[in-house]
Every structure is written in C-alpha cells, then in structure tokens.
C-alpha cells in the first residue's frame, strides 16, 4: 500500500512541470547614460504603425520584408562587428511585431540592441 502510494507520489512529482517564465531578455540603458556612437556603427530598424519594417541607413529609408530581415541583419553584422541595432517602433505598431523583430535580431546574432523611444508625433 505504502509502496504504491509512494510510487504515485514520485510519478506525480516527476511529471508535474511548473510553467516557467521565459522570453526575450534585454538590458535597458539608464536614463542618464548617453553614449556617442558613430553613425556608421548604427543600424536603425524602424517599425511603422502599419507594422512595416524599414532600415534607415545613410539618410535613406529602405523597406525590408519580414522574411528578409534576418539575412539583411546578419549581412550587416558580419560586415561590421561593432554594429549596434537601434530598434524604433512607432506608436500604433503592435507589440507582436515588435517581439517578432526583436526575435529576428537576436536570431541574427545581434547582441547590442537598443530600443529607441518613439516620437510622440506621427511621421
């Protein structure tokens, strides 16, 4: 009797999974911290209110389809290992799109990711 009960107990102990929190970790910069970074070492990734993704490089805006995002970022990271990716999403963009893009950036191997504050006005 006791053996069976213990066996059941151990079975349930082993099969119970506590749902652990998981997600994309990020370290935010402190408010006071402003670091001057050379413009060539920044890749601006923008998400607009309609969930379109674009790169803003050398004063030029180029729209990137979501499927190409990882490849494009990987290519730029291999060309410049000091690259910082600055992700800016407009108000009105969905949080899902933001997470998807952040995930793609991390999958592409970007470790230095900064999240820029969106402007209050609409562009």
């Amino acid at each position: 009797m006791a053996d069976i009960a213990f066996l059941l107990l151990i079975f349930f102990l082993v099969t119970t999974t506590m749902n652990q929190d998981k997600g994309l970790s990020l370290h935010l910069p402190p408010v006071s911290e402003t670091v001057e970074v050379q413009a060539k070492n920044i890749l601006n990734v923008w998400i607009n209110a309609a969930d379109d993704i674009a790169f803003f490089e050398r004063d030029e805006l180029s729209i990137v389809p979501f499927g190409n995002l990882m490849g494009e970022v990987t290519a730029r990271l291999t060309a410049n290992d000091k690259l910082i990716v600055s992700l800016k999403a407009e108000r009105g963009a969905t949080y899902r799109m933001f997470v998807d893009v952040l995930d793609e950036l991390k999958l592409a191997g970007a470790t230095r990711i900064s999240i820029a504050e969106p402007e209050s006005g609409t562009r």
Partner: peptide, 19 residues
C-alpha cells in the same frame, strides 16, 4: 514603450519580454 520608459526612470533595467 511608455512602461519601458517608466522602468528606465525607476532604474529597473533588467527586462524580459515574456513570450
């Protein structure tokens, strides 16, 4: 983003976007 800015001001910098 507003919440993130509040977190930065509160100096809570370790953030995990739960997915």
């Amino acid at each position: 983003s507003d919440v993130l800015q509040e977190l930065r001001k509160a100096e809570a910098l370790r953030v995990n976007f739960s997915t």
